[in-house]
Design a protein around this nucleic acid. Structure first.
Lengths: 157, 157
DNA sequence: CGTAAATGGTTATCGCGCATGACAATTATG
DNA sequence: CATAATTGTCATGCGCGATAACCATTTACG
């Protein structure tokens, strides 16, 4: 641990006062903390964040197409290709051809995929609980609600 | 806008039920929305998010060193180099040599830098208000508090 | 004092997440 | 039937951040 100078203190008092006024800034900081933790958790399971997210969606919504997956993940469909490739090569999901439309694929999780997804989901919840330690139960719920409201605010009627 | 199929609805009902249970997921989605909006706002001013953040910190804390900047931004000091380079080349900040330590630089914003920073800060607050539209005043405050708590929970007593 | 360790800045390189733009194959539509 | 729209794909680039190795300088210590 570095010692403080006489004139220049090492721990300066909040050099980011201005930034702290921006919700985006605090959001970004919180995001990075949770995200890098989640990445570490998933790494042990051979997954990355995008890869896990896609797997989870495919598990919960079988026979989804890649474009729909992209829409669900709010990303461009071109990016889903490599994600689905990775999941397919790991035998976690399958690309099935769909009847009546030879362009599209119907994505479906394998048994191994569903198993790994459950495992990952549980591990994530466990670690997330630690990251959310500074918040009590009500605060966690509030945070969830607020974040969801920011994200399109679509709540199933 | 795509029309819905008869059998396969385009808007399928929340394919990410499972992910929605994770705070990290909602956090990530909210982050991306606010972040890309902020990036667009700053682009018009010739700034990027990292570049603006660094500028804001230097403005509020003159004669900061690059390592301290890195610490304030929670990033490795190597990454601050290119950021400071960009700001210096744009004449927004200066690298001053510091007395008694010829290794370090004291970063200081120029008049133009402070002006641009104020401009950017105001623009960001304006746009952020729009992004936070689905939240009322209390909710915005709550969100801020919760995010800050997640981020080390250091509140200046 | 002199050598070793710590510190500040720099460079090169890599990884992840995501966007854009173009493309071929297929399907829908006027 | 010709044209438009849709699906998946590929190549490429950008932004952000991490790691590792490297000097120059400063500090600590035997």
């Amino acid at each position: 641990m570095p010692r403080a100078f006489a004139s220049v203190p090492t721990r300066l008092g909040a050099p980011d006062r201005r930034l702290r006024q921006l919700t985006s800034y605090s959001l970004k900081r919180a995001y990075h903390r949770l995200q890098s933790d989640a990445a570490r958790v998933l790494e042990d399971l051979g997954l990355r964040i995008t890869t896990y997210s896609a797997l989870a969606i495919v598990c919960d919504m079988p026979d989804l197409r890649q474009s729909q997956l992209a829409e669900a993940l709010s990303m461009e469909r071109s990016n889903t290709v490599v994600i689905v490739d990775a999941l397919e090569q790991a035998d976690l999901i399958e690309r099935r051809r769909v009847e009546h439309d030879r362009r599209a694929y119907a994505l479906r999780a394998t048994a191994a995929g569903r198993r790994l997804c459950d495992q990952a989901t549980e591990a994530l919840h466990r670690h997330e609980a630690e990251m959310l330690a500074p918040l009590n139960d009500k605060e966690r719920g509030d945070l969830m609600d607020l974040l969801r409201k920011l994200d399109g605010g679509v709540d199933g009627s």
